[in-house]
């Protein structure tokens, strides 16, 4: 039995379809990523799974409990970290943690072993009101509060949004260590680079799942030949490659352009000649493997076409 089963879930708000026929299964102990931009439907799906809102149609279960009929049972066994900080701003770090432990009928000490690694970072600030913590600290506190009752499943809705890259890396390190303790973790994120840290991912766009698989398998499914192209003037390069007849798509990636070609016959020499003819200097072209972001954009493009 899968830990989380989602069957044909749809959610409609008036005339807007926020989720359209979602089907997904998540296994026990998996670290599963839901990858998509704002407005894709990630939070809406999470709200249904943690029993905060009802689906318009379809069914879902968490650990065998139905989200509609067994909401109470689900709430006892899940830990939830919502997209926006929603702990008590005027209670201290310690008071918040104590509160959450006690409403689940326990104490902080009961499951301290689970949160110890994380809590150690914020322990020096335990008398500080939660509202006065920095973004990274709030995140750590929220994670502790979600774990303090030893949940079987952890739902983290965009836990790293708006947080700097160093704190983000640290956070994912913590998640990996939690996974080793046997907790099933479902994380949503708009950051493509975090996708590769998950065992399996679902790419979601405009309420629909574009792909579900391991990051490696999704990367292998990228269908076009891909090159990284660089020249002295990035912006001009982008415009010129867009006008190149062999281009399927081209997107800026830092200081290079990722160029996906329509077919295999176009070689680096052909691209080079084209750019040289337009006056580009210091041209560098190399064949590369696709990353998750390349795949995501290719799928977005395909869905739109």
């Amino acid at each position: 039995m899968n830990t989380i089963e989602i069957k044909k879930i749809s959610k409609v708000f008036g005339s807007k379809t926020a989720l359209n026929n979602i089907n997904m299964s998540i296994k026990q102990g998996e670290l599963f990523g839901l990858i998509g931009a704002d407005g894709a439907g990630k939070s809406t799906l999470f709200d249904i799974l943690v029993t905060l809102s009802a689906a318009t149609s379809g069914s879902a279960s968490v650990h065998g409990f139905d989200v509609e009929k067994d909401a109470k049972n689900i709430r006892r066994i899940v830990g939830y970290m919502p997209g926006r900080f929603s702990l008590y701003q005027d209670l201290t770090v310690y008071e918040n943690l104590n509160f959450f432990a006690s409403i689940f009928g326990g104490t902080i000490e009961d499951n301290y072993h689970l949160i110890k690694d994380i809590y150690e970072h914020i322990a020096p600030f335990k008398e500080r009101p939660a509202g006065k913590l920095s973004g990274g600290m709030k995140q750590k506190l929220a994670l502790c509060c979600a774990l303090v009752h030893q949940p079987k499943v952890l739902f983290l809705d965009e836990p790293t949004t708006g947080v700097d890259p160093v704190s983000r890396k640290e956070f994912w390190g913590m998640l990996k260590r939690l996974q080793e303790k046997g907790i099933t973790i479902l994380v949503s994120t708009p950051y493509m680079d975090e996708a590769v840290l998950c065992e399996r991912i679902a790419l979601i766009q405009e309420g629909e799942i574009m792909a579900i698989d391991t990051p490696v398998a999704i990367i292998k499914s990228f269908t076009h030949p891909l090159y990284s192209v660089k020249s002295k003037k990035l912006y001009q390069l982008l415009k010129d490659l867009r006008n190149f007849k062999e281009t399927y798509s081209c997107y800026a990636f830092g200081q290079t352009v990722h160029l996906a070609l329509k077919n295999q016959d176009t070689t680096a020499i052909i691209i080079q000649d084209y750019l040289h003819g337009l006056g580009h200097e210091n041209i560098e072209i190399k064949s590369i493997d696709a990353g998750i972001e390349d795949c995501f954009m290719e799928l977005m493009k395909k869905t739109a076409e």
């Binding site: 708009p190 982008l238 800026a252």
Partner: peptide
């Protein structure tokens, strides 16, 4: 932080607006 949370294609379109502006 103008592009927080936005999908990767829109993010790049936004940066092209930035390039045009700086140009």
């Amino acid at each position: 932080e103008p592009t927080g949370g936005v999908d990767p294609i829109t993010r790049r379109q936004f940066w092209e607006l930035i390039y045009e502006t700086a140009d």
